[in-house]
Amino acid sequence: MAEIAAPEQAIFPTEGTAVEAIGWSARVLPADEAGLKAYEAFCEGACWAPPQSPLWAKAWLYDADENGVIALLFRDGAPAMALALEVVRKGFVRVARFAGGSHANGNFPALHPSAGPERGDPSAVRSLLQGVRAARPDIDMLALERQMESLGNHPNPLLTLPHTQSPNLALAADLTGGFDRLLSRSSKDRRRKKYRSQLRKFEAAGGYRRFEASSAAEVDNLLDLFFRFKGERLKRMGVADTFASPHVRESFRRLFRAALDTQPSPFALHALEVGGKIRAITGSSRSGDRIICEFGAFAEDELTKVAPGDFLSYQNIAEACAEGVALYDFGVGDEPYKRAWCDIEIRHADVFVGLTRRGRALAMTSFAKTAAKRMVKQNPTLARIARRARQVLGRG
């Protein structure tokens, strides 16, 4: 990875609040046009998880201004680490979190390995926190949730901060060795038999095609359908629709439209069309030799029993294997259809740091709530009761 060696002032705007420490300097900017350009420049040569990529930051922090924060950390003037955060209200408390909120999973900061802070060195992250506190004294707490412990060979420097295990684990499939090897670990003959049966039924229904959105019009159409499929299913389950807000929907539109101009595309929409109708949709991101399925949904119609969502996953994973991808990550959430493919459990970490008195109280509460959620989710009986209660309350 190329290192940016020029002094920070030559690349990044001088506006914003800077905090100096021995070897470290932090610059904190609003997420306006200049701040987002600074973040994009900072990320040249860095590694990051998809939810901290420049494309994601621009999509989610568009028009955020003071409701967004770009925090840049330098080591002896060279870019070291950066965060793109959104600021939200929780009652009387302001919280800064990864841009995208609950839609940002498997998080990892933008990091320059050649200059980035070591995991065991808290002084770097402390300088970054001091910069945020000085620039934005109105922010009470940082809630940096669902973080990966490492990215490639690089440990996550943010985990020098107080953290705990996230309530939800993520599931992934090891693709090394190819598709046949993957199938052999999960009832190869039964899965191929099911796939052939699906093929016959889809051909009888008018034929099928799998395709990737390649224009803004296709992006909009697939997202419109996804939001409808997902919303209808969640409503029937009595679960709140996290994709319902206009901000979330527009952010995903900006993201997948912008990704069309980048090759290979870091974010992609795939669809399964059967008999001239879209029956299943997935949205994915790519990070190095890893593909992450960010979301998926399917139409509930006469072909639902044929499992179009499972068929689309089969083809997505087969394509990933053909491309030499090492890991197919189904993201956060433990579901039977994921278990059918996956042999890897990924534990994420949640960081809660209070920056004010109110923030410290909220951080303590957040740690307690996270521990309670984790206990419930790890106990099948409690998880079943909680799921049923959520459905009853949702219908009410």
Rank of each mutant, 00 (worst) to 15 (best):
S53Q: 04
P51K: 03
L73N: 04
F74D: 05
W56A: 04
D63H: 10
A135C: 13
R94W: 12
A71Y: 07
P79D: 11
V125A: 06
V88Q: 07
H112Y: 04
P117E: 12
I139K: 00
A84R: 12
L55T: 10
W56N: 00
D76M: 02
L61Q: 02
R75D: 02
G68H: 06
L128F: 09
G68C: 13
A59L: 09
A96M: 11
A49F: 08
R133Q: 15
V93K: 05
V95T: 07
E66Q: 10
P109W: 13
A110Q: 02
L144R: 08
N107A: 11
E118C: 00
A78D: 01
V69M: 04
V93I: 15
I139Q: 05
R119K: 12
S102R: 04
R75Y: 14
G91W: 12
A110M: 06
A143T: 01
V87G: 00
N105R: 02
N105F: 06
A115K: 09
A134W: 06
E145S: 08
N105P: 00
V88E: 12
L144V: 12
L83C: 05
D63E: 15
Y62A: 11
P50R: 08
N67G: 12
V87K: 01
V88T: 07
L129R: 06
D140P: 04
M81H: 03
N67A: 10
D76A: 05
R119I: 15
L85R: 01
M81V: 15
M81K: 04
A57F: 11
K58L: 13
A110D: 04
R97S: 11
L55C: 09
A78Q: 13
P79M: 07
L55S: 03
P50W: 14
A59T: 10
G131D: 14
G116M: 07
A115Y: 13
L61C: 02
D140R: 02
H103T: 03
G100K: 03
V88L: 08
P54C: 04
I139C: 02
S114P: 05
G68P: 12
A135R: 06
A82E: 14
G120C: 04
E86W: 06
A96R: 07
L61N: 03
F98S: 07
N67D: 14
